[in-house]
């Protein structure tokens, strides 16, 4: 029983950390990766809580489909950015 509670609290803590990263990161693509991490950890939490069917749909939707949707939306919204330092991204060295 102790393993159940330990994995429960660890998965909850990791979900909270990833969700905080989604809010706090200024690099938008990095925030989307943290959102995918939220999906993966919540799928693990569903397995620990005894709902593997929800874990299936959470992996497909929360870890893959929703971040890809966000990436497409972000890529279409800001196709041209002149000052990439504002977005906290690395400068592009090679063409």
């Amino acid at each position: 029983m102790a393993v159940f509670w330990m994995m429960d609290y660890l998965a909850l803590a990791l979900i909270l950390v990833c969700a905080g990263l989604v809010v706090r990161l200024r690099n938008l693509n990095g925030a989307v990766m943290a959102l995918s991490g939220v999906g993966a950890f919540s799928a693990l939490l569903f397995v620990v809580l005894g709902a593997p069917d929800d874990a299936h749909s959470e992996i497909v939707v929360g870890a893959i489909a929703l971040p890809v949707l966000y990436l497409v939306a972000i890529g279409k919204a800001r196709a041209e950015v002149h000052d990439s330092g504002e977005l906290d991204e690395q400068p592009r060295t090679r063409p």
Binding site: L10, L14, N27, M33, S36, G37, F41, L44, E89
Partner: peptide, 24 residues
């Protein structure tokens, strides 16, 4: 899964997006 804590730290401080994909 406790090893994942280190990877979440890399996801937090990774300078590029590709670092975060590796951690994920």
């Amino acid at each position: 899964i406790a090893i994942g804590v280190l990877l979440v730290v890399r996801m937090a401080i990774g300078p590029t997006v590709a670092d975060r994909i590796v951690a994920l």
